[in-house]
């Protein structure tokens, strides 16, 4: 029996669970035909059921036969996504992209594996890397290039913007667009807080908050 595990029940994962059947129908019909069971995976869970689905421990999930198991990681932190997805892929598990039924990915370059795309759009001439997480009501507009393990919250519209690996842009942040020749740059591992107003390039590891925005601290970038 095919099992699809969504890792993480605390945060953003549950928003994607109801979208899996639609996503399979449109992107992985061969998996849908095998009538997969959908489970949440959590390392330490107090419950065995969450929001209508079984909750499995991470150890039990790892013990499943790799050829019949797919997963994605619904955790907002990009490093956690990288850590877990690399570990599970080394077990031979398949990393499955999940698309919301109202999402629209028009990008000519296919997104990297393991995308979690909420009710959001990706424009024709944008590229996105591995394991991108986009929550609802966001738009990756024209001429954007997103690195690997990037997290985009809800209600974020970016255009002419390059976002570095592991960067996080949180809900409702306003990033004024760059130009076609000189895109706005958000550095590697930068974090843009909720509703922050960004009208300049953001250096690597910077944590920006508020409107007008200020740099709260600078995280080391590995």
């Amino acid at each position: 029996m095919v099992t699809i595990g969504l890792i993480g029940i605390g945060g953003v994962g549950p928003e994607f669970m109801p979208q899996i059947p639609w996503s399979l129908e449109h992107f992985n019909p061969e998996l849908l035909q095998q009538n997969p069971r959908l489970v949440y995976v959590e390392s330490e869970s107090e419950t065995d059921h969450y929001a209508g689905h079984e909750v499995m421990s991470l150890d039990d999930f790892k013990a499943l036969p790799p050829e019949e198991t797919c997963f994605n990681v619904g955790i907002a932190d990009g490093s956690a996504r990288k850590h877990l997805s690399e570990e599970l892929e080394s077990h031979g598990f398949g990393l499955l992209g999940i698309y919301h039924s109202r999402s629209q990915c028009l990008a000519h370059t296919p997104p990297g594996p393991g995308i979690l795309l909420g009710r959001a759009g990706i424009s024709v001439n944008s590229t996105v890397g591995r394991s991108l997480l986009v929550l609802g009501a966001s738009l990756i507009g024209q001429n954007c290039a997103l690195g690997d393990y990037v997290t985009i919250g809800s209600q974020v519209c970016i255009e002419h913007t390059h976002v570095g690996d592991f960067a996080q842009v949180w809900n409702g942040a306003i990033v004024t667009p760059g130009t076609a020749d000189k895109p706005r740059r958000i550095g590697q591992g930068a974090i843009i807080g909720m509703g922050a107003y960004i009208d300049e390039d953001v250096p690597d590891g910077a944590v920006m908050v508020g409107n007008p925005s200020r740099e709260l601290r600078r995280n080391p970038v590995s």
Partner: peptide, 12 residues
């Protein structure tokens, strides 16, 4: 040349 033009044409 706005990017929206390309998107709109793709889903015309």
């Amino acid at each position: 040349t706005d990017g929206l033009a390309l998107d709109l044409l793709t889903v015309l």
